[in-house]
Design a protein around this nucleic acid. Structure first.
Lengths: 263, 263
DNA sequence: CGGGCTCTTGACACCCATCAAAGTTTGTGG
DNA sequence: CCACAAACTTTGATGGGTGTCAAGAGCCCG
């Protein structure tokens, strides 16, 4: 189901993110960490050196279950995934979207799929990190920046969940969708995968509906309302924001607050 | 606004939980920890000795903001509280209820009240714990049981949030309310504050509505449907479960999975 | 060119919010 | 202990947001 592939650091030289060659997967993880904290040169090197085994997974694959201890620390380096719960009667609720740079449930504890599963929404590339045992969970003061980064990742995940609760509990379909699009744009932009006004969004409307607690039909109509109001354009899987400030107000969108260095 | 009061361990002798005298507040925290992990005698003693300053807060008081670093570790020893977000237009969304034994946002990071606030729903007693710096966050292997307990607390909070998302996103009002009541009963029973079939619930319907993303009126009607279907009785702030198994099926309620010792 | 997917649109029903007002309980002061 | 006010619960009427069912349109891919 997945195809292991080893990277050497040399690959970094030949392929940047814009290159046609396969990009060095550490690039995106590096950007993700830098968007939250400042790493020392040693920490940056440790991070790069720890990233070893790359894998590719087709869409719809289960990337990890909460049923197994996530002993290996993995990052998404390309593609989209989500964490989801499936109810016995087939209803599906998406908790959170995962984009390149995000960790794959590194804090998962053995719990069944009725608790949570992580599923690839597109073709996805992951990279496995080694030597993190002493950094995650147990304290390690040799790399305070990396520790801070993991704390920030936890806080960011918490913010995503709380925002998700607020959307579902207290916002209309229109506000929900606007808020989610702004969140995704914000996150993608922070790792350099979105321009200031546009967002590549390779998701079926069914997926957005499952995240926002709506039916596909109603999600479609809401999307069209956003277009009719000239809030967004949507062509070929790319959302363009036409009135981002107004949208932020309508959706009560608060930008991410998890970063620790405000300088 | 709050009235500090010092406890000595001797207080444990004179007042048990059923006593008219003020109960030793560590009792409930002890039960909370024991419901998740097995503590060694030394760990139990450390836990008890760390609990020092008790405080009392009237209902509607703000217990802690996400705006201040929660440098002090606090536990709720009596009464109910909740974590909540208030939108600019006044809409309110409750994220989670806090019951006796629960920690009060110990992992909070400086973020404003537009992120999250913790508010007392009834008169509330808290107790402050000292000497935990090295146990929470940084690794401490002298007390593996306590470390495991904090991990379990994190996982439980995560479960509550994911359940909350599922309720709001994919369940009907009837299922939502049933699920929440079962969760609260489960949690209260685990710390010895609920019998096998009943649950003291000192909450206004308005509060339940704010947690479940419903209007007060509709929450009231849903409550009556549960009564009409002879699922519950509700008298004088006490819920009695008449068909708990059937209710679990309807609400797809999964009991807590965060505990580490399954023996 | 045909067969799935996905997106879109329409019709209809229902769940739930809102507004309003009547009951009921709780709290408070005399 | 009573009287009264305030808060909370309950009930009714009405409208709107959203789900469901169904069918057509666009698109991709074999």
């Amino acid at each position: 189901m997945n195809h292991p592939q080893r990277y050497s650091r040399a690959a970094r030289v030949i392929g940047g993110p814009e290159s046609n060659l396969r990009a060095w997967p550490g690039e995106i993880v590096q950007r993700r960490f830098s968007s939250m904290v400042s790493l020392s040169p040693e920490e940056g090197r440790f991070l790069q050196d720890s990233l070893a085994l790359g894998r590719s997974h087709p869409a719809r694959t289960e990337l990890c279950t909460a049923g197994q201890i996530a002993s290996r620390l993995c990052f998404l380096t390309s593609g989209w995934a989500c964490s989801i719960r499936i109810l016995p009667d087939g209803r599906r609720q998406i908790f959170e979207f995962l984009i390149p740079g995000d960790p794959l449930g590194y804090s998962l504890f053995p719990r069944g799929p009725e608790f949570l599963s992580v599923i690839a929404l597109t073709r996805v590339e992951t990279v496995e990190a080694n030597g993190w045992r002493d950094l995650v969970g147990a304290g390690n003061f040799a790399f305070p920046g990396l520790r801070a980064a993991f704390d920030a990742l936890d806080r960011e995940r918490e913010q995503h969940l709380l925002d998700q609760v607020t959307r579902l509990g207290r916002q209309t379909a229109y506000e929900r969708l606007a808020h989610l699009l702004l969140e995704l744009h914000d996150r993608m932009a922070r790792v350099g995968l979105a321009s200031r006004t546009s967002l590549p969004l390779p998701l079926k409307q069914e997926i957005l509906a499952e995240a926002l607690g709506l039916s596909v039909v109603h999600l479609n109509r809401t999307l069209q309302m956003l277009r009719r109001d000239r809030m967004i354009e949507l062509k070929a899987g790319v959302v363009t924001f036409l009135a981002p400030e107004q949208m932020r107000t309508i959706a009560d969108f608060q930008p991410n607050q998890a970063r620790t260095d405000w300088g």
